[in-house]
Amino acid sequence: DTLHVTQDGKHIELRGLSEEEIKLVEELLRRGRKVEEALKIIEELRK
C-alpha cells in the first residue's frame, strides 16, 4: 500500500508498506517522529 505524508512542507509518498506498517508509521508521526526515523524503524522491524 501507499501512504501519503506531508512533512516540513514536503509531500512524501511511501510505497510498498503493509497495512500494519502504515499504521505504525502513522502512529510514529503522530508522536512527533520524522518520516526518515519512522522508515528506519520499519526497516529494522523487517529484518
Rank of each mutant, 00 (worst) to 15 (best):
D1A: 02
D1M: 02
D1H: 11
D1W: 00
T2K: 09
T2G: 14
T2V: 14
L3Q: 07
H4R: 05
V5R: 01
V5F: 00
V5E: 05
V5N: 04
V5K: 02
T6C: 14
T6S: 09
Q7D: 06
Q7N: 05
Q7Y: 00
D8S: 02
G9K: 02
G9R: 01
G9D: 06
G9I: 02
K10R: 07
K10D: 08
K10S: 06
K10L: 13
H11S: 09
I12N: 05
I12D: 07
I12W: 12
E13K: 03
E13C: 05
E13R: 02
L14H: 06
L14D: 10
G16W: 05
G16Y: 08
G16Q: 06
G16D: 14
L17F: 11
L17A: 05
L17R: 00
S18R: 05
E19Y: 12
E19M: 08
E20S: 12
E20T: 13
E21R: 00
I22P: 00
I22Y: 07
K23I: 13
K23E: 13
L24V: 11
L24P: 00
L24H: 10
V25M: 06
V25L: 06
E26W: 12
E26R: 10
E27H: 09
E27F: 06
L28R: 02
L28N: 07
L28H: 10
L29D: 01
L29K: 01
L29V: 07
L29E: 03
L29I: 12
R30T: 11
R30L: 13
R30E: 15
R31A: 14
R31I: 14
G32C: 05
G32H: 09
G32S: 04
R33L: 14
R33Q: 14
K34H: 09
K34A: 11
K34F: 09
V35G: 03
V35T: 03
V35M: 03
V35R: 01
V35D: 01
V35K: 01
V35E: 04
E36A: 11
E37Y: 07
E37K: 04
E37T: 09
E37M: 08
A38T: 14
A38F: 08
L39K: 08
L39T: 06
L39V: 14
L39H: 04
L39M: 14
K40R: 14
K40V: 12
K40N: 13
I41R: 11
I41S: 08
I41P: 00
I42T: 02
I42S: 01
E43W: 04
E43Y: 05
E43F: 05
E44T: 09
E44Q: 10
L45I: 14
L45W: 08
L45H: 11
R46I: 06
R46L: 06
R46E: 02
R46F: 03
R46Y: 02
K47H: 12
K47T: 13
